[in-house]
Amino acid sequence: MSERNVVPDVHRRMKPGPPIFGLMAEFATPAELLHATRRSVDAGYTKVEAYSSLPIEGLAEALGFRTRLPLIVLIAGIVGALSGFFLQYWISVMDYPLNIGGRPLNSWPSFIPVTFELTVLFAGVTAVVGMIALNRLPEPYHPVFNVPRFELASDDRFFLTIEAEDPRFDPEAVRGFMLGLGAAGVYEVQH
């Protein structure tokens, strides 16, 4: 299976840098992928990435990855709350004070609902935009898509790449390492 996908390296770019993006191993189950990821990190590889069609618990931890997203969302929520309240305060008390039904100018109980909605709006939009931006999406082109088998990554196969930029990257050693992990196939990923 693996031979079929090894594309001859004829399109070598003139730019300096590694000739290929990296090597990709294919696995049949999430457990194998998780195991292989852990082993790769343990073996000292740093440019490791795993691909799957479902979130796999423990995978991000195995890669030593954490996200700052919750903090960003919290800040956005606080900004939303403050701007929501002060928008209303500024309009009702400072810019155009108007007596309505004898209510105080700063009718704070009435200002709570909009304050709350804007908190959620700011935080929610930030969660989504932040996730997409931090993931550097939309990204229509990515080298991994050059591997034909990779279209199964959104179905029922599981993939692991070790990228050529990894200081310890050596094509033959990595190929051997991947096969040793029980990969069902190892493919070169072209740029």
Partner: peptide, 19 residues
């Protein structure tokens, strides 16, 4: 959006989804 199911993406994705 060019989603490719990378583990790091999934992690941020699940965080955002839970938030």
């Amino acid at each position: 959006l060019g989603w490719r199911g990378s583990a790091r993406h999934w992690h941020r994705y699940e965080t955002a989804y839970l938030l």
